[in-house]
C-alpha cells in the first residue's frame, strides 16, 4: 500500500480538495469566444466567396452578432475575476509568454475588425439602422469606406478570427501543469467546435431554406472533423506522460465519463450528426430545429467538461487526513 497523505489540514479555497478555480463563467467565455470566431469567419468567408445570394444572412447580417456575443463573453470573464477593480491591469502590460495576455490584446484588435466587418454590410444588412448613420456626413463616409474595402476587411478578419478561435483552446493547453489540457489538439479542436456552433447558429436563425441547408452541410462536415479531433485528443493523452494517462481516466471511468460521453459526444456530436445526415439526405426533416440547438449545447458542454476535468487533473495526488469541511467552522458565526 502507498499512502500520500496531507497531515496538516488544508482547505484552501478554490484549491482543496481539488482545483476548482474556474466555473461556468470561464466556460461560457470560452464558448462565446469560439462562437464569435466562427461568426466572423463565416461572415468573412461568405464575402470572400461572393455568397451574398446563396447565404444572404451570413454574408450581410451575421457579423453583427460577433461583438454582441463577444461582449457577453467578456462580461462572464469579468465576473470570474476575483480582483475586479484591477481588470485594467490586463492592458498595462503585455506578457509575451502568457496566452491570456495575448488573448487580452487579440480582443483589442478583434473589436475594431468586427465593427468594420459589420459596417461593410450595414446598408445591405440593416438598412433601417444604416439610414441613421447616413444622415451624418461622417457616418456616410465611414460606411462608404467600409463597403469599398469590404473584401479586404474580410481577408483581415479571417486570420484574426481564426486566431481567436484557436486561442480559446491554447489558453488551456498552455497549462503544462494540468495534464488533461496538455495537448496540441486543443487549439484546433476549440476552433472547429467554435465554427461548428457558428454554423449551427446560422442554420438555426437564417430564413432562407437554401442558406439553412448550406450551413447544415457545412456543420455536418465540421462535426465530422471535430469527432476526428476529439479522437486525436484522447489518443494524444493516452500515449502521453504518466500524468496524462492518469488524467485521461477522468473521462474513461472517472468522474467525468458520463458527462463527456453522453452529454458532449452523444448529445453534442453524434445525435446532431445523425439528425443533420437525415435532413440532408432528405429522410427526415422533422427535427431540423433540434440539431443546431444540440450543437450549440455540445459546444458549451465541451468547454465546461474540459475546464472541469482539466482543473482537477494534477501532478500532485494527496489524500487528506482531515475533513476540510470542518474548517468552515472558522468562518461561521455559530458553528
Amino acid at each position: 500500500m502507498k499512502e500520500e497523505l496531507l497531515v496538516t489540514a488544508r482547505g484552501n479555497e478554490l484549491i482543496d480538495p481539488s482545483l476548482h478555480i474556474w466555473t461556468w463563467e470561464v466556460a461560457m467565455y470560452l464558448f462565446l469566444g469560439g462562437l464569435t470566431a466562427g461568426v466572423m469567419v463565416f461572415a468573412a468567408l461568405m464575402t470572400v466567396l461572393n455568397k451574398d445570394e446563396e447565404a444572404p444572412f451570413a454574408a450581410k447580417r451575421l457579423a453583427l452578432l460577433a461583438p454582441l456575443v463577444l461582449s457577453a463573453g467578456m462580461t462572464t470573464l469579468f465576473l470570474d475575476l476575483e480582483h475586479k477593480l484591477f481588470v485594467y491591469r490586463f492592458y498595462t502590460s503585455f506578457q509575451i509568454t502568457s496566452p491570456m495576455s495575448w488573448g487580452a490584446w487579440i480582443l483589442v484588435v478583434i473589436y475594431p475588425i468586427s465593427i468594420m466587418q459589420i459596417l461593410s454590410t450595414f446598408r445591405s444588412g440593416y438598412g433601417f439602422f444604416a439610414g441613421f448613420a447616413d444622415r451624418m456626413t461622417i457616418g456616410r463616409e465611414i460606411l462608404d469606406f467600409c463597403e469599398r474595402y469590404r473584401r479586404q476587411i474580410a481577408m483581415v478578419a479571417i486570420p484574426f478570427a481564426t486566431a481567436l478561435g484557436i486561442y480559446t483552446g491554447i489558453l488551456l493547453s498552455a497549462f503544462g501543469a494540468r495534464p488533461f489540457w496538455n495537448s496540441g489538439v486543443l487549439g484546433p479542436l476549440f476552433l472547429v467546435s467554435g465554427m461548428s456552433t457558428a454554423a449551427a447558429l446560422v442554420a438555426l436563425i437564417a430564413r432562407h431554406h437554401s442558406e439553412k441547408a448550406l450551413f447544415t452541410r457545412i456543420d455536418l462536415g465540421l462535426i465530422v472533423v471535430e469527432i476526428a479531433l476529439v479522437a486525436l485528443f484522447l489518443i494524444n493523452l493516452a500515449t502521453g506522460t504518466g500524468q496524462q494517462i492518469d488524467a485521461l481516466q477522468s473521462v474513461l471511468g472517472g468522474p467525468y465519463t458520463l458527462v463527456f460521453w453522453v452529454l458532449f459526444v452523444g448529445i453534442g456530436l453524434l445525435i446532431p450528426l445523425l439528425l443533420e445526415t437525415l435532413e440532408i439526405t432528405g429522410v427526415s426533416k422533422k427535427l431540423a430545429m433540434l440539431a443546431p440547438i444540440l450543437v450549440l449545447f455540445g459546444g458549451y458542454a465541451l468547454r465546461q467538461i474540459m475546464l472541469d476535468a482539466g482543473q482537477e487533473s494534477s501532478w500532485t495526488h494527496y489524500d487528506t487526513q482531515y475533513n476540510s469541511e470542518l474548517l468552515e467552522r472558522l468562518h461561521e458565526e455559530n458553528p
Binding site: R10, N12, E13, L14, I15, L19, I21, W22, D80, L81, E82, H83, K84, F86, V87, R89, F90, T92, S93, S98, M100, F175, G176, A177, R178, Q311, S314, W315, T316
Partner: peptide, 25 residues
C-alpha cells in the same frame, strides 16, 4: 497588478499557489 484571474494557480504543477486572499488577489 493582480486581476485574480487565477491563471497562475492552474499554471503551478505543485498546486502551490494556494491562497486566494479574501481580498481577491
Amino acid at each position: 497588478k493582480c486581476t485574480g484571474c487565477k491563471a497562475c494557480i492552474a499554471a503551478c504543477p505543485y498546486d502551490a499557489r494556494l491562497v486566494m486572499h479574501p481580498d481577491g488577489y
